[in-house]
Design a binder for these strands. Structure first.
Length: 280
DNA sequence: AAACAAACCTGTGCGC
DNA sequence: TGCGCACAGGTTTGTT
């Protein structure tokens, strides 16, 4: 579900409540969510600690603790991070509850809810190799270092399809199935075009549109699809779905050229939407 | 090297 | 109204 724009929106929605607050209660109830370590490791690792930063890399949320450890939270397909009153009833599939006390003394719960249990919560020492995937991530499109030169060298010159390449988190961090389709549509390129067949101008456009689409989506608070699964930590929905030009628009007329009918195929193992007329 | 398929799970929406 | 099936935003692993 959540791609970079949704994860960034969640990060922003928890930051003020989390940073500076101290953990006064922890309950890891779901085993699958803490499978990388254990319930005990998460509870012991958090209790009494103070959060000092709420960061994000690609789709990974990283919370730094005052003792030098960090907390990695990945939402995968169905995870949600919610800020609630500690007395509020727990939603079904609540797997981790972190009771926070702010400097002013007010108490809030940070809860991890995840029906499909693909998501994870890991408390780790950054010197250890417990979360190696973080170090393998490519550049995040929102950082200053995401320059055209960096982007171009990360793509390499390959015979690989564009969609598979952009979905590869070691090439660019944070792009998922919705945004890759929107980025490729804006660039008027098909998902199956090969990276090594693109002109310099097309590469430049692809880089610029990657940044543009992701920025606009963050601005819109992400995309909440019809199932309304995705909301930020305060329960607010995103509105970028109203700006989708191809995703979930199979059979509808192309909003860009007004001539094509949006098609859906499977590419790179994922449901793929594109306009057969204006994407080449 | 790249393209697929399957695996991990639950919920939902569709056709009958 | 109810049932069964297909499918879903991510990532890893193994096979062609």
């Amino acid at each position: 579900m959540p791609e970079l724009p949704e994860v960034e929106t969640v990060r922003r929605s928890v930051e003020a409540a989390v940073v500076g607050s101290t953990v006064v209660r922890v309950e890891a109830t779901g085993w699958r969510t803490v499978r990388r370590t254990s319930k005990r490791a998460v509870e012991v690792g958090l209790l009494g600690e103070t959060f000092v930063a709420a960061r994000r890399r690609g789709k990974y949320l990283l919370f730094d603790l005052a003792n030098g450890n960090s907390v990695m939270v990945h939402l995968r397909m169905s995870g949600r991070l919610l800020l609630t009153d500690p007395t509020a009833p727990r939603e079904p599939h609540t797997h981790v509850v972190i009771g926070l006390s702010s400097p002013s003394g007010s108490e809030t719960d940070l809860r991890f809810v995840d029906p499909r249990t693909f998501g994870e919560v890991v408390v780790f020492n950054p010197d250890d190799d417990l979360v190696p995937e973080i170090s393998r991530l490519g550049l995040d499109p929102l950082v200053d270092e995401f320059t055209f030169q960096q982007f171009r060298s990360a793509l390499g010159r390959r015979k690989r399809g564009l969609k598979a390449t952009l979905l590869d988190q070691s090439v660019v961090a944070g792009i998922g199935n919705i945004y890759v389709d929107e980025i490729l549509h804006r660039t008027r390129l098909r998902h199956d075009r090969k990276v090594d067949a693109l002109s310099l101008a097309q590469l430049r456009l692809l880089h610029a549109n990657t940044v543009e689409v992701i920025r606009e989506a963050v601005e819109a608070g992400g995309s909440t699809l019809s199932d309304t699964q995705y909301v930020d930590a305060l329960g607010r929905e995103g509105i970028f779905q109203t700006a989708h030009r191809v995703y979930d628009r199979e059979g509808q007329r192309c909003l860009t050229c007004g001539r094509g009918i949006i098609r859906r195929v499977v590419a790179a193992g994922r449901s793929t939407h594109f306009c057969p007329v204006c994407q080449r």
